[in-house]
Simulated scan of single mutants.
Amino acid sequence: MNRMVENKVVVVTGAGGGIGRDMALAMAREGAKVVVNDIGASVGGEGKDEGPAQAVVREIEAFGGQAVASTDSVSEQAGAARIVGTALEAFGRIDVVVNNAGILRDRFFHKMSAEEWDAVIKVHLYGSFYVSRAAAPHFKEQEGGCFVHMTSTSGLIGNFGQANYSAAKLGVAALSKSIALDMQKFNVRSNCISPFAWSRMIGSIPTETPEEQARVDRLKQMTPAKIAPLAVCLASDAAKDVNGQIFAVRNNEIFLMSQPRPVRSVHRSEGWSAQTVASHALPALKASFHELERSGDVFSWDPI
């Protein structure tokens, strides 16, 4: 049986551990040549260690796969260019980018510093842009390519203490959709995965209430390996007609997530004043208001 991504060259960022590691291993087992990118930093982005990326490369080589390590940072444009350059130098092309690298600097909004905001936005949103932009000319020239971006229900739905992360992850979803629209004529696809999985990233989610602790306990049941099959499929030619979508994976469930669309409208032929907005528009629309929910409220059942 043919392997799903045979001979494709795949860059996986943040692949030294957790979800990224499992996606890199799964890509290699399905025939891909993999660039394992990871700077080896802490969850908060501090420090640098070549060990994690090299360890995953050794794992891949141990079962006969092909891989090289990259320790450049996605948060710098030059670093992103070097990551793509590593794929070209080692394997002669690039076919797939999996934007997985991320850090957390969780803090309730009224306490969040500008530095905590910048650091998270830089890695998640700028990082996804930088690596994608570095790969885009090659995808355009070869008239084919695939982006898989990691988003999060913290951005798609909401969560406590993660304004920086949530803003970045919702931005990633919009970035993916824009890439899909702009590059579809070059046979380039761009999709998102919102993963539910226990990893060191999740370890910093606030657990100050019993409800928050219960949510984290549920997440611990979901392993990073559950995410990899969808990522491999999206990277493969079997998903050639899948573009601009947002999926979520929660243990053994795969969800197609909604994207913003109009819910309800009101109209006045003479136009609106602030007073008529208050007396007419808001009361008419109120029944369709969205609840102030967070991810744990929407995904409230135990994973299967």
Rank of each mutant, 00 (worst) to 15 (best):
Q245W: 10
V266E: 12
G14Y: 01
S42Q: 11
E141V: 10
L285I: 07
S273V: 12
R107I: 00
L282W: 13
K111A: 13
Y165D: 00
Y130N: 14
P260Y: 10
W301N: 15
Y126G: 11
V35T: 02
A248R: 01
I157P: 03
T13E: 09
P283A: 02
V263I: 14
Q184W: 14
I179P: 05
G40M: 08
A168L: 02
I94L: 10
N2H: 15
L282D: 13
V131A: 07
A225K: 12
V74F: 02
A239D: 09
I246C: 05
S128H: 10
G14W: 00
F109K: 01
I193G: 04
S273I: 04
A248L: 05
R58V: 09
F299C: 12
M201D: 03
L256W: 07
M4V: 02
M4N: 06
Q66N: 06
D302Y: 11
R250Q: 12
S42H: 00
G127E: 00
E253K: 12
S73W: 05
F147P: 02
V120C: 10
V68N: 12
K48Q: 09
G14Q: 00
A173H: 04
N99S: 13
I94Q: 06
E6N: 09
N100P: 11
K226Q: 14
L104N: 11
E253G: 03
M23P: 03
L292P: 07
P229F: 06
P137T: 06
E291C: 14
R21F: 08
R215K: 13
A274R: 14
A78F: 10
A24Y: 01
L285E: 05
G144C: 11
A53K: 08
K48I: 02
V188M: 08
A78M: 14
E89W: 04
E143N: 15
R250G: 01
I19N: 05
N251L: 13
E6A: 09
G171I: 00
D217T: 06
G144I: 03
V74W: 02
A134D: 08
S154D: 11
G18Y: 10
A26Y: 01
G17C: 11
S288I: 04
M112V: 08
K185T: 14
S178D: 14
A78W: 04
N252C: 11
K226V: 12
S166H: 08
V43W: 00
A274I: 10
A41N: 05
A62G: 05
S152W: 00
G65T: 06
G40T: 08
M257L: 15
H149P: 05
I19C: 06
A287C: 10
Y165V: 02
D241I: 06
E61K: 15
A90Y: 01
S42D: 09
I83P: 04
K185I: 12
N251M: 13
G145I: 09
P303F: 02
A69N: 08
S190E: 01
R250T: 03
W117P: 00
W117Q: 02
V123L: 03
A32E: 03
D38P: 09
Q66D: 08
E76R: 14
